[in-house]
């Protein structure tokens, strides 16, 4: 059966076969789903129990806001490091020699930095520095919250 949207709420009854009056189904549903005899009276302690829960919630300290101001510098540093690593990986990828970097693209960087052995060393040093900085920042944050 195709549904034809009714123009107003009274038309719902018309669509269901009411033709201006409530149809049998409407009356049946009205009798049993909207019956006043179905009304529940709240138990005597309901208001008290709700208010206890409300007071308990009101007395709780507000949730600690996320420390964006502290986290932001670290996040920027990590992003910068990641971008640097990606850039290194692209320039020192397979099939590229360290010297290829200097053919006009990154000639502003010191040549020694890109020699094969030293690049690995710098990467390790950078990773170690990053780890130390992360641990130090965590300890500092934990120390302040105590």
């Amino acid at each position: 059966m195709k549904y034809i949207p009714p123009t107003n709420e009274t038309d719902v009854a018309l669509l269901t076969g009411g033709h201006g009056e409530k149809c049998g189904l409407d009356r049946l549903l009205d009798d049993h789903l909207a019956a006043a005899s179905d009304q529940l009276t709240p138990s005597s302690g309901f208001v008290l129990s709700v208010m206890e829960a409300i007071h308990a919630q009101a007395s709780e300290p507000p949730p600690i806001a996320f420390p964006w101001r502290r986290v932001l510098p670290g996040t920027i540093a990590i992003l910068f490091t990641l971008i640097t690593f990606v850039a290194f990986a692209l320039f020192l990828g397979p099939g590229r020699s360290d010297t290829a970097i200097f053919d006009g693209r990154m000639n502003l960087l010191p040549a020694a930095f890109f020699s094969a052995g030293k690049t690995a060393l710098y990467s390790i040093l950078l990773a170690a520095c990053l780890s130390i900085a992360t641990v130090a920042a965590s300890l500092r944050l934990a120390g302040r919250s105590r």
Partner: peptide, 15 residues
């Protein structure tokens, strides 16, 4: 209104 229409059709069969 559409949901009411369909709900009533289903209930009419059941009841």
């Amino acid at each position: 209104k559409a949901h009411l229409f369909r709900a009533r059709n289903l209930l009419r069969d059941k009841l």
